[in-house]
Amino acid sequence: MKRPLTSVAFAFTLLALAVYTLFPVYLMVKIATGDPSDIMRERPGLLLHSFTLEHFRNVLSSGYLVAPFEKSLSVAVLTALGALLLSVPAAYAISRFPKNVQYGFLLLIFVTRMFPEVGIALPVSVAFIRWNLLDTVPGLVLAHLIRVLPVTCWILLNTFETIPKDLEEAARVDGAGKLAALRHIVLPLALQGIAVAAIFSFLMSWDEFTYALYLCLSEPTLPLKVYYYMNRGNIFETATYSLIVALPVVVVTYALQKYLRSGYLAGAVKG
């Protein structure tokens, strides 16, 4: 007899949940496409009352978008490449070590997560002033790798662990050299994991804020532009830049949902 009532309550809970989750995203779109006369009021309405592409046009024609966009993009691409270069061989090697060595390595990675980023960014920025790396792309890539490498290592270690050693040995018994076995057996099987690691490192660098704040003074990245406009109270630019930063992340994260789950969790379980 309770059933209809419970299912109504259940549906209502889901609806409330959906509204709560979507509201901030909706708000971003509402402001970025809202008419100033409609948004800048003492009591802004909750619904969409207007639609304009004026703010996007302003941001595009302002001339301030291209440089930060290029910087963010090149830093993210280089960070992803650097992360693969450092962590693919390392993760493969560690997956072939005994269990206790693997455990020690994971512990090391977990410890790096406990350091506050402001604590790392400060000495790094002091050193970068001396090395003339402030405001440069390589400097920011070096800093972004600090937070990206532990994550790519987790993902890649999980990937290589699932590839049985026997496969490789079978190839070598059949006369393939070590490198040939790696290229023709291990790499193709690991390709999916490597792609996921690359995409995650790209995204983690693309929307990174803390290191960028410490290491960029006059040549900001896109996330810094969001912060800059937010502090100046330009809500339309803030929302428009927010959308530009968030859009690729949302789309890709959505497409990679199942990896998000196993990647994060596998990392967390082992840590």
Partner: peptide, 26 residues
């Protein structure tokens, strides 16, 4: 839907929450 916020960059959610918690906010 529930996982959506994980895909929003933190600085973006911070900027948006500022509109939510503004004195003339939502």
């Amino acid at each position: 839907l529930v996982l959506l916020p994980l895909g929003i960059p933190t600085i973006v959610s911070a900027a948006t929450m500022r509109s939510v918690f503004d004195t003339q906010g939502y």
